[in-house]
């Protein structure tokens, strides 16, 4: 018992460090990536390739005065950024990076991650509501309707995977996919199950993780050309910093989950040297795609987003669920 507890505590510390490091350097990667796409060099002054930029930005954010506007609900206002960051970090604890590197493996790992992911929506709601800013309130209302709309297809797709692999244990899901890329869930020729729609499911899941993490083209919560800065309009200093880190931590979680569910986790595509490097390679490729998408597309509208979810993604994922259920029965 006490050993598990210690395990978890150590894991949480490592998770915080990992999340913070990721957040910092993903910002750097995003800025560099965006710059390259726009044919500029991006941050390149501080350190080689601008690699000292993120810590300096962190120092700058921390050095700033924490302003709390007079009219806000102080407690909620302070809790919200923490709430945006904390669930993301907690989710890291249960994500298996390789067969050995996992904070605490749980049989209901996938549920845990989803449960924590939906808390992110609450953080946005609280932030917007407590800010007493009209733009923030509008943004948080958007964020909530968006979170609801996109958690459904995401969960349905996850259930499809759970049905195929027969387990809710993230470790188990990966183990069910070992042995080369043709065993991955994204491909239809999984042994004994010829579901042609798995690629579509992957796309649905990917789109949903974009929407869940409030990334462009679904960044309606912080649509700066309409809502100034959305739910974090009133936040400065580290309050803003936490939201920022939370966003990137969530991106890492989303990419990890996609990797685990569809891309075989730490499994090597050719069955060679499975290990944590494959997992990291896969999630960073996915994150690069996130960044790439963000700097390519305009933002959707709120109704376009809801239409996409309710009219396309949910029926499609439901259909795939039924199909998978049928196929499982047949084979």
């Amino acid at each position: 018992m006490s050993l598990t507890l210690l395990n978890v505590i150590v894991a949480v510390f490592i998770a915080i460090a990992f999340a913070a490091l990721n957040a910092a350097y993903l910002v750097w990667a995003e800025r560099r990536g965006a710059a390259r796409i726009q044919r500029r060099p991006g941050p390149n002054i501080n350190g080689p390739f601008g690699l000292f930029q993120p810590p300096l930005d962190g120092v700058k954010l921390m050095a700033k005065q924490l302003l709390i506007p007079g009219d806000v609900d102080k407690i909620l206002f302070m809790v919200a950024p923490v709430l945006a960051m904390a669930p993301a970090i907690t989710s890291f604890v249960t994500i298996p990076f390789s067969s050995h590197i996992v904070g605490h493996n749980m049989h209901i790992g996938i549920l845990l991650v989803f449960a924590f992911a939906s808390m992110g929506g609450m953080a946005l709601l609280l932030a917007g509501w407590s800010s007493r800013n009209k733009y923030s309130v509008m943004s948080s209302v958007r964020a909530v309707s968006q979170a609801i709309a996109y958690e459904i297809p995401m969960l349905i797709t996850a259930i499809t995977i759970v049905m195929i692999t027969g387990t809710t244990d993230l470790m188990g899901i990966v183990k069910a996919q070992t042995g080369g890329f043709w065993h991955w869930n994204i491909f239809p020729f999984k042994a004994g199950l010829f579901n042609p729609l798995m690629l579509m499911s992957f796309l649905i899941f990917f789109i949903c993780s974009l929407a869940e993490t409030n990334r462009a083209p679904f960044d309606l919560g912080e649509a700066e050309s309409e809502l100034v800065a959305g739910f974090h309009t009133e936040y400065g200093s580290m309050g803003f910093g936490l939201f920022f880190m939370g966003e990137y931590a969530n991106i890492v979680i989303g990419a990890s989950l996609t990797t685990i569910l569809f891309l075989g986790g730490w499994d090597c595509p050719f069955g060679l040297f499975p290990g944590v490097w494959w997992f990291l390679l896969k999630i960073y490729l996915l994150i690069a795609t996130f960044i790439w998408i963000r700097w390519t597309f305009p933002r959707t509208t709120i109704y376009g987003l809801l239409n996409l979810s309710w009219k396309i993604l949910i029926p499609a994922s439901l259909f795939n669920l039924l199909l998978t259920a049928g196929l499982l029965k047949v084979f």
Partner: peptide, 10 residues
Amino acid sequence: DLGGFSPLMY
């Protein structure tokens, strides 16, 4: 305004 940045740069 519609949220796409790169076209502005191009």
